[in-house]
Write a protein that binds this DNA or RNA. Structure first.
Length: 280
DNA sequence: ACCCGTGTTCGCTG
DNA sequence: TCAGCGAACACGGG
């Protein structure tokens, strides 16, 4: 269920559950093959087993769980467990022997009697072992921009990249090289907050609009994070109230101008929500 | 049965 | 070489 805020919550959970713990065993379900590709389940389990969790980092929607060498302290032989949650991935903790969650695909058995389950219904997520425990060492993530929450948003860089794109701004925002962690929901929410029409060409935004968009996306992230820090994760499909301003609210009155009727359109085969009256 | 989905990746085109 | 685009991946819920 991940855009940046949900992945940040997952990172905090994993730190609380696993930092300093050793993996006494790793179990992989048959269907998890596609999550692990190109690594085989056997190699994955054997490589991870016996190592301790030394760090948990997040960059955009990516998690990197730092694993110690098989025996001694940090240094040579450290590995990273790179986790992307796809559309339906989630890390859960259960006591050993408890009823596993549905669609549990990979299980990390810890030395404190708990088991971390990687659950993923649709199997769009990824789990891979990489040589290092830091994002800078992961070659295929080099193109990603700095994390918007950790580093803040570099408006000059954002403006430069947008100026080169001929696509609609909403579509451009889904490119993780710009602001890693922005997904379909927060792209719509950020544009609403910045009062920018999602159909506008990315290169048409003024410096002031780029600034408003950066602010709007951060505000949307922070609001979602605050909502999820509560006891229960509130999400559209879980029957809770819709916590968003425009997402999945087509037909409703605009919460800002109170006169526009929120609209839903398709862009790049994804839904976009906006107020046709106050987004220009 | 049909449509939809908080994401990425692949193959094709210009 | 590369931006852009549509399909594909897989499964459950309305």
């Amino acid at each position: 269920m991940p855009e940046l805020p949900e992945v940040e919550i997952a990172a905090r959970n994993l730190r609380a559950w696993a930092l300093g713990r050793r993996l006494v065993a790793v179990e992989v379900d048959g269907k998890a093959r596609r999550l692990l590709r190109p690594t085989s389940a056997a190699v994955f389990a054997r490589s991870a087993r016996g190592r301790a969790v030394e760090s948990v980092r997040r960059l955009g929607k990516h998690l990197l769980i730092g694993l110690s060498p098989p025996t001694r302290g940090p240094g040579e032989g450290s590995l990273g467990l790179l986790s992307h949650l796809g559309m339906t991935g989630k890390w859960l903790r259960r006591q050993r022997g408890a009823e596993p969650p549905s669609h549990s695909r990979v299980r990390l058995l810890l030395d404190d009697g708990a088991t971390l389950h990687y659950r993923d219904t649709r199997l769009f997520g990824r789990l891979r072992l990489v040589p290092g425990a830091r994002f800078g060492e992961v070659a295929e993530l080099k193109a990603l921009g700095p994390d918007p929450l950790e580093q803040g948003i570099d408006r000059g860089r954002l403006a430069r990249l947008l100026a080169r794109s001929r696509r609609p701004i909403k579509v451009a925002l889904l490119d993780q090289r710009l602001l890693p962690g922005v997904g379909n929901i927060h792209a719509s929410e950020g544009l609403f907050r910045a009062r920018i029409d999602p159909r506008r060409r990315a290169s048409s935004l003024s410096p002031a609009e780029v600034r408003a968009l950066a602010r709007g996306i951060l505000a949307s992230f922070r609001r979602a994070l605050a909502a999820e820090e509560g006891p229960e994760v509130v999400y559209v499909e879980e029957g809770g109230d819709n916590p968003f301003l425009v997402y999945a609210r087509e037909g409703e009155r605009c919460p800002r101008c109170r006169r526009g009727i929120l609209r839903r359109i398709a862009q790049a085969q994804r839904a976009t929500f906006y107020c046709p009256r106050c987004q220009r």
